[in-house]
Write a protein that binds this DNA or RNA. Structure first.
Lengths: 182, 182
DNA sequence: ACCTGAACACCGTTCAAGT
DNA sequence: ACCTGAACACCGTTCAAGT
């Protein structure tokens, strides 16, 4: 008989690792979290993580994908609300984890896996914003550029600790400049 | 007599360390550069660096300050040119080093020294932009918010590899939205 | 005052070995 | 197929000792 816990069904342990990692990344950041710490939190040995993931960067990608999935499904339930509210909420989702977005940017240069994740993330975000911005009546020509500006402003907000009302002010200003009536 | 090189005059060796670090950070990034590598490039032993700097983060701060100093003095010589050109040039200065700005953001949460440097840098940049934006005729009320948006867009450009003409397009769009005629 | 050699605790990762 | 113990090379940093 197996020494430990009983084998969990397919993929359940992988998810346990991701849950542990998400918690620690969110609290102490990526660099502040060792594989050792993740393993301990998940109740396994550090090297076991390497059975499920090629390396630490890939654990990060797993955590990020969970965040995106959660963010998108939550966004679905807010389909009725104005762009402004949905933006505000989406930023909230990605802000909590101690600037994981900064870690992504810092590692893009050194990890192929992170680089492609980051590229995909940007395309997705831009695509969503373009369709939102078009709905509101911005000419299609303009929409692409405005969306990229919005992406940068959003990432700026994610990268810098700020007050709730600063966030409102900046998003409102950006939307107003772009021609969206608040 | 001293075993090595002869003592350089006050501060000259410190500068040698910074020069070595700047070169390596620019080429391989902060995480991709070990204290060992910096020391070797500077022709000293790794632990000697700790005589001049409290730690690796402080070496980074030294490198960044050199960059800012160079950027500002260069900006002086461009006093006559329009905002747009000056912005474009300033971004160029900080873009070369493999996303050092991303490293700064990633370490703000873990290093007090980096956090205060970063806060100061933002205030400086915002102050400069506010005065520039006012000169161009934006109402003072607006200027502060527009400047913060600009800071985020600039950092976005610094954080993401992009084509030269993308940069032009985004800065132009931002300035135009803000009411500055290109 | 300035610099080194040797060591420290820790890191991400590997691998042969177990079940 | 899944997991471990033990080891690897490396990291940033410390410190007693030298000049």
């Amino acid at each position: 008989m197996p020494r430990n816990k009983r084998h969990l069904e397919q993929g359940e342990k992988k998810q346990a690792i991701l849950t542990a990692a998400a918690e620690l990344f969110t609290e102490n950041g990526f660099d502040g979290t060792s594989m050792n710490a993740i393993a301990k939190q998940a109740g396994i040995t550090p090297n076991t993580i390497y059975w499920y993931f090629p390396g630490k960067d890939d654990v990060l990608i797993g955590v990020l994908n969970d965040l995106v999935r959660d963010g998108l499904t939550e966004a679905m339930t807010m389909a009725g609300l104005p762009v402004r509210e949905r933006l505000m909420h989406a930023i909230g989702v990605f802000e909590r984890p101690e600037s994981l977005m900064n870690t992504v940017h810092a590692r893009v240069a050194h990890s192929e896996a992170i680089a492609t994740w980051h590229a995909r993330f940007h395309m997705m975000l831009e695509q969503i914003l373009i369709s939102e911005v078009c709905k509101v009546g911005i000419p299609t020509e303009r929409a692409a550029t405005v969306s990229r500006l919005l992406v940068y402003v959003i990432e700026g907000l994610l990268s810098h600790p700020h007050q709730e009302n600063d966030r409102h002010e900046m998003i409102d200003a950006m939307l107003e400049l772009a021609g969206v009536d608040a």
